[in-house]
Design a protein around this nucleic acid. Structure first.
Length: 473
DNA sequence: CTATGGCACGGATT
DNA sequence: AATCCGTGCCATAG
């Protein structure tokens, strides 16, 4: 609302017929991406600025000013998270990992493992036992996106082996389930996936050229330049780009971090591209501030093209209405985007502060908080928070991707406490007994409620539980 | 008689 | 206004 008055509106009276709020807050990064892309394609008044790197940490920055991570004076109280908008190449992930329709029990267990273990398990049979150490070393150095930051040379050198051996192993790794894991860059991951895909289905012939030579441009959506580069029409380029975004995933590691807890309760849907990343500033130190990256689906900053505004003055008679429309839509979008970013940043800052322990330590440290409380603290309407929280996902420092909703789960800590009790039980405890134990530990819960929690967690009733667990309902 | 799940109610949350 | 959640009551299964 404050922003509104400061915006340079060319003709305030004509904006009246437009909705003064475009609902962006409720959108996922994926949805936002689509929305903006559509707008960019049709609205010449919108302009995507060159992306900007922090020279130090290579993060892509969206807001102007110094890199919020690197320029931070480290004297901060570590309960204060560093929150900022970070741009990433954004791809919608849908295809790939097609092997996931029906999960066998094995796969279910696999999901509970970390990524390196999961990959190792698949490829172990193919490996020469001699290469084990080497493989483990490689897998241990995957980052949270499933990419490898070491160069082949470094690895070869470290193990005193010829580089071809490293390459061979990498080839095997990259073909393992999240296809493309262990690639050195998003680009390489895409190429590997493309190749794998090409073995079973037709792929656009120019796709690999587009990836090798035009990925930068693709990230910026500069289709006409790409068309020139590839020597085909820009329509064709869009087609290929669409194929890529729908079938390939530049961050293979993000495919396998679904929310394990919920998977019993009709929620087989895994989450891929998180909307927010939370990390620790320093991996080593326990007491380090959290770094919260709110993902902006676009690399580069979006703004209203100043030249377009200029051109508006001299618009030919018959175009003036259309151009005006463009201009207004563009500035509205930019404004709403800013507002969305602003709200999400404030929200995440507060969440990261409140739930620090949960983020670092896990489920049983969740502080029960309601959206209403946060809304009051931030001075916004409750529904604002609701929208901001809905349908979004967060990647925690441990790599798990969870729905943002989970931060507002009122009973999670009690349920995990209950799980712990059941975990160590010697003989199956009845609901009444569990209820009693829980109240002794400070959670006064009705017996009936224990039963509900059990079913949420997919735990069988006592008489069907033979002293050991491992029963999947 | 005990343990549990279904149904439904009321209050809180969204 | 609609939905979610904890709970009590009651029927049923063992």
């Amino acid at each position: 609302m404050l922003l509104q008055t400061q915006l340079p509106l060319l003709r305030p009276q004509t904006t009246a017929h437009l909705a003064q709020t475009m609902t962006l807050l409720g959108l996922t990064a994926t949805e936002l991406y689509q929305k903006i892309e559509a707008e960019l394609a049709t609205n010449p008044a919108l302009e995507l600025l060159e992306e900007r790197y922090c020279p130090n940490c290579r993060r892509k920055l969206v807001a102007s000013g110094p890199c919020p991570v690197c320029s931070q004076p480290r004297t901060l109280d570590n309960s204060d998270p560093i929150v900022f908008i970070s741009a990433r190449e954004y791809f919608q992930f849908s295809g790939m990992t097609s092997a996931e329709e029906e999960k066998s029990d094995d796969d279910f267990i696999a999901d509970c493992e970390d990524l390196p273990t999961y990959v190792l398990r698949q490829i172990a049979p193919e490996l020469d036992p001699q290469d084990y150490r080497l493989t483990v070393h490689i897998l241990a150095n995957l980052d949270e996106d499933g990419l490898l930051s070491l160069s082949n040379l470094e690895i070869a050198h470290y193990h005193h082996v010829p580089i071809t051996r490293v390459e061979n192993i990498l080839r095997i790794i990259q073909r393992a389930d999240p296809v493309g894991v262990g690639a050195h860059s998003p680009q390489e991951a895409l190429l590997v996936q493309l190749e794998a895909l090409g073995e079973t289905q037709a792929v656009p012939p120019l796709a690999s050229k587009l990836i090798t030579e035009g990925l930068e441009l693709l990230g910026r959506r500069q289709y006409s330049e790409l068309a020139g580069l590839l020597g085909v029409s820009s329509h064709k380029v869009r087609e290929i780009a669409q194929f890529i975004t729908q079938n390939l995933n530049p961050f293979p590691g993000r495919a396998h971090w679904g929310d394990i807890h919920q998977s019993t309760a009709a929620e087989p849907k895994a989450y891929y591209n998180p909307d927010v990343l939370i990390k620790r500033l320093s991996e080593k130190e326990e007491e380090s501030p959290l770094v919260v990256e709110v993902i902006s689906p676009l690399a580069g900053r979006l703004r209203v093209n100043p030249e377009y505004r200029q051109a508006l003055q001299e618009a030919p008679e018959d175009k003036v209405a259309e151009w005006m429309e463009h201009y207004e839509r563009a500035s509205l979008l930019v404004k709403c985007l800013q507002q969305r970013n602003h709200t999400i940043m404030r929200l995440m800052a507060r969440i990261a502060q409140l739930q620090r322990m949960f983020i670092l330590k896990g489920d049983d440290h969740l502080e029960p908080v309601t959206r209403a409380q946060i809304a009051q603290e931030l001075g916004v309407h409750e529904s604002t928070i609701s929208r901001a929280v809905a349908n979004k996902t967060v990647q925690l420092p441990n790599g798990r991707i969870i729905p943002l909703k989970k931060f507002f789960d009122r009973s999670l800590h009690i349920r995990t406490e209950m799980l712990k009790i059941i975990e160590v039980e010697t003989k199956p405890l009845t609901d009444t007994q569990i209820a009693h134990l829980l109240s002794e530990r400070g959670y006064p819960i009705a017996r009936r409620t224990v039963a509900k929690y059990r079913s949420i967690e997919g735990i069988l009733p006592a008489h069907l539980r033979s002293s050991n667990r491992l029963a999947v309902a």
